[in-house]
């Protein structure tokens, strides 16, 4: 009975996630498209803001320019490359996954996977170990603290 309840829940969650990831029927609006690209570009007159967030004249002009390029039918990659050609690679707030930019994406993912594998390995090893009882050292430690630790 309870098992059935869990299965129903799992099906429900998988279904919802599938719906969320299913390609949307509607076309991305031009404003949303422009906003998406603009939020990947650094505003040159700001400190740490994207073109999408800034109200500087240069950012306004870039948003207009991106809109023009989208209407002209340029691909996202072409638009990004145009900006890289003019300003250099540091105009992109999200490093590309080529060259050294790959490191900033791959390193944390690799480290996390390594950590997860290490943890799984350690858990397995602990499972195979016998349980330990408190050593005389531990007992002494507890006794000492029972009598002397200040009130935390």
């Amino acid at each position: 009975m309870r098992r059935a309840a869990w299965i129903v829940l799992a099906v429900m969650v998988v279904g919802v996630i599938a719906v969320a990831f299913w390609p949307h029927g509607g076309h991305e609006s031009e404003a949303a498209h422009m906003h998406r690209l603009a939020s990947e570009l650094r505003c040159v007159d700001c400190e740490g803001l994207s073109v999408a967030d800034s109200s500087a004249a240069s950012a306004r002009e870039q948003r207009r320019d991106i809109g023009v390029r989208i209407r002209r039918g340029e691909s996202d990659e072409t638009i990004r490359n145009a900006y890289v050609d003019t300003f250099g690679e540091n105009i992109l707030l999200k490093p590309s996954n080529r060259g050294i930019g790959l490191v900033v994406w791959a390193l944390p993912i690799g480290a996390l996977l390594l950590g997860a594998v290490g943890l799984a390995f350690a858990l397995r090893r602990w499972q195979r170990q016998p349980r330990l009882t408190a050593s005389a050292d531990d007992e002494r430690f507890v006794a000492r603290h029972r009598s002397s630790a200040p009130d935390e």
């Binding site: 650094r42 540091n90 105009i91």
Partner: peptide, 16 residues
């Protein structure tokens, strides 16, 4: 490493 900078901003941090 290569003598020119990169920017790492909100889109990177949000994605990760």
């Amino acid at each position: 490493v290569r003598g020119s900078t990169l920017s790492v901003g909100a889109p990177y941090f949000e994605r990760m």
